[in-house]
C-alpha cells in the first residue's frame, strides 16, 4: 500500500474526520481495557504488548480473567474467538471490497478494522467502487481509531499502577462486557439463550480448564437454533436474509 499517496487523497481526511467524532468512546474503552489488563496482574510491558498485538477490546477483556486463573490456552482462544465472532460476519462483508488486493494486504486491513470502521465504511461506500478512495478513507479512519485506542490503553496501564486495588477498577472491564451483552439481548430467543448460557456456566463451573464456558456456548447455541426452529416468523426472516 503506497501510503504516501493515500495520505493526500481527500477521502483520507473524510475518514479521519468521521472517526474523530467517536474517538472519545474508543479512547474510554481503551482506558478501561488498559486498567483491566494491568489490574489482572499482567506487567505493564506485557499489557502494552497485548494491546498492540491484539487490538481487540472485548476479546482482550474476556480473555483476562481466564488468563489470570490459568485456563488452558485453547479455552482462552475459543472464548476470544467466540466473543469476536461478529467480525467473522463483518469479514464476509469486507470480501467484495477487498477482493482485488493481494492476501497480505487483505490481512493487513483486517487487523485494523474494528466495529466502527465497518459501520462507517459501509455507510460511506454502500457499493464496492473506486478502490483508491476506499483505501484512503479506511486509512484515515484507522489511523485515528488506532492511535486513540492505543494511547488511552497505555494511559490506563500506567494509571492502574497508581490506583489502589481495593477500588475495584478492574471491574470496569466486566461492566463494559455487560453493556455489550445487554445490547445483544434483542428478543425472546436471545434472552433465553443468555439465560441458558448463564445457568450452564454456573452448573458446569466445577469442570476443569474453564470448560464451563465451552459448555455454556454449546448449550446456548443449541437452544437458540431450537427456538428459531419453533418460531415461524423468525425463521421466515432468517430465510429471506439467506435469499438476499
Amino acid at each position: 500500500m503506497s501510503s504516501s499517496t493515500l495520505w493526500r487523497h481527500p477521502e483520507f481526511a473524510a475518514g479521519a474526520r468521521e472517526t474523530r467524532d467517536v474517538a472519545l468512546g474508543i479512547g474510554a474503552w481503551g482506558l478501561v481495557a488498559g486498567v483491566a489488563m494491568s489490574k489482572a496482574g499482567l506487567g505493564a510491558a506485557i499489557a502494552i504488548a497485548m494491546s498492540l498485538c491484539v487490538f481487540a477490546g472485548s476479546a482482550q477483556l474476556a480473555a483476562l480473567p481466564l488468563m489470570v486463573q490459568g485456563a488452558p490456552l485453547w479455552v482462552i482462544w475459543a472464548t476470544a474467538f467466540c466473543v469476536n465472532l461478529r467480525f467473522v460476519i463483518f469479514s464476509a462483508g469486507w470480501r467484495p471490497y477487498l477482493r482485488s488486493l493481494p492476501r497480505a494486504q487483505r490481512l493487513f486491513v483486517a487487523y485494523f478494522t474494528v466495529d466502527f470502521t465497518y459501520i462507517a465504511f459501509m455507510r460511506r461506500f454502500p457499493q464496492p467502487g473506486d478502490v483508491r478512495a476506499q483505501l484512503a478513507y479506511l486509512a484515515g479512519n484507522i489511523v485515528v481509531s488506532w492511535i486513540a485506542w492505543q494511547a488511552m490503553t497505555i494511559l490506563g496501564v500506567v494509571l492502574a499502577d497508581v490506583i489502589p486495588e481495593r477500588w475495584g477498577l478492574g471491574f470496569a472491564g466486566t461492566l463494559a462486557l455487560l453493556g455489550i451483552t445487554a445490547s445483544l439481548l434483542v428478543d425472546c430467543a436471545t434472552w433465553t439463550a443468555a439465560a441458558v448460557a448463564a445457568c450452564a456456566a454456573f452448573a458446569a463451573f466445577a469442570l476443569p480448564f474453564h470448560l464451563n464456558i465451552v459448555v455454556a456456548i454449546a448449550a446456548a447455541m443449541a437452544v437458540g437454533v431450537l427456538i428459531d426452529q419453533f418460531a415461524p416468523p423468525r425463521r421466515a426472516a432468517a430465510a429471506s436474509e439467506d435469499a438476499a
Binding site: V83, A198, G224
Partner: peptide, 12 residues
C-alpha cells in the same frame, strides 16, 4: 448466539 453466550459465560 455464540458471542452472546461467550460473553455471558465470562461475566456471570
Amino acid at each position: 448466539y455464540a458471542p452472546l453466550a461467550a460473553l455471558v459465560a465470562v461475566i456471570v
